[in-house]
Design a protein around this nucleic acid. Structure first.
Lengths: 209, 209
DNA sequence: GTATGATTCAATCAGTTGATTGAAGTTTTG
DNA sequence: CAAAACTTCAATCAACTGATTGAATCATAC
């Protein structure tokens, strides 16, 4: 055991946990190597520098999520009887499904995915470069179902749609802690909840900005 | 000039700018003193340690916003003909009005207020302690206008409501940059936009969580 | 004007940061 | 098995981190 792939994934696991909890700037490589019990140089050997490590953590799961979102969206686009709700489900379900599938490890991934969206530079640029294409394509889809708005109105609709899932990903744990109940959830139900919250707004928001 | 109050406020201005852009962990005291052209010891003298400085930055504007939100909410509660929209306006308008009033400096404050809500520990606990009372009181108000839901449903309604203003505060600049247009806005209009987006969801969100 | 307190300063501390080196160990390949 | 490539290791680097010290400077009150 403890061969190449093992060490790499182990470092990624621990790094993801720390980045999720403490953010990029708040995480030191020492904290990661201390917990993962590997040498500092192992990070340099396998990944490069700290930013490259963060990128590797991101690409392991975040990228596949984006790919899945776009795949789902294209299937929605291909179907004539699709609705705006289908677009929202295409956006919300992929991250939720992956998190749920990962069980206990999903909690960390959830926090990481959410926090990544609110990181300062240099992480913001990295995340944004991943999401730029995704954002554009989803905005195009929204345009089809809610036509004749200004560019700014579409931009904000996407931002608000995104902010709801970010909110769930990052606040799920604190809310659960505050409310003290063990809230079991399914990806489909949470997706439906988020959709339900913003569906009317997506259609009818009165933008005065 | 350059007496006590001047130096203190100057440090606070520069610190706010850096905390807003780089986050708490990503900001070094050296970066602050380098720009503000004061001595490192001045921070220790006026504020204490780094965390105390952050607290001071928070208390200068964030606290007054919370106070104003609660004042507005109580006036909504005292009026028999109030609606849920009034509750949302009581929540959204105070931060927006303050930011707008501050002009160019408001952009920094906007980013700071938004980022503060997504900071990792130890900032999260600090921010949460400020917002705990505010959250509880607004949730009580929502309960009056949207009765008979579970505790979890109210918690999430508040979180989503909050996430929309956080989204606006932090994304306004990037969205403007992406969209390349100079978007002028008034606090009332943005508040109305956010309200409009979430009003239906606040009432009718189907929570399956 | 001088004594008192408030403020600023340069100098320095020990600990941590990200990163690199070259040797030692391991696995894979011929 | 031996050579080659891959992986891990301890040791070390310079730069930066938050924080503290005691002297110097300033403003104020008497």
């Amino acid at each position: 055991m403890s061969t190449k792939a093992d060490t790499k994934n182990h470092i990624l696991d621990v790094a993801e946990k720390h980045f999720a909890r403490d953010g990029f700037a708040g995480t030191s490589l020492r904290a990661i190597i201390k917990e993962s019990k590997v040498n500092v140089a192992a990070i340099a050997y396998h990944f490069g520098n700290k930013e490259d490590l963060y990128k590797a953590v991101t690409e392991r799961f975040a990228m596949p999520v984006v790919v899945e979102q776009l795949k789902r969206l294209r299937s929605v686009n291909a179907n004539d009887s699709s609705t705006l709700e289908d677009v929202l489900a295409a956006f919300y379900e992929p991250p939720l499904k992956l998190i749920k599938k990962m069980g206990k490890k999903g909690e960390t991934l959830s926090m990481f995915l959410g926090r990544a969206q609110t990181e300062p530079e240099p992480v913001y640029s990295l995340v944004d470069s991943h999401y730029a294409a995704c954002r554009d394509e989803f905005i195009e889809a929204i345009k089809r179902f809610v036509p004749d708005l200004s560019e700014a109105e579409y931009q904000w609709r996407f931002e608000f749609m995104l902010s709801l899932i970010v909110c769930f990903l990052t606040r799920h744990k604190p809310v659960k802690a505050r409310y003290s109940k063990e809230l079991e959830w399914s990806p489909e139900d949470v997706s439906a909840t988020l959709s339900s919250f913003c569906l009317a707004g997506m259609r009818d928001m009165k933008v005065k900005v």
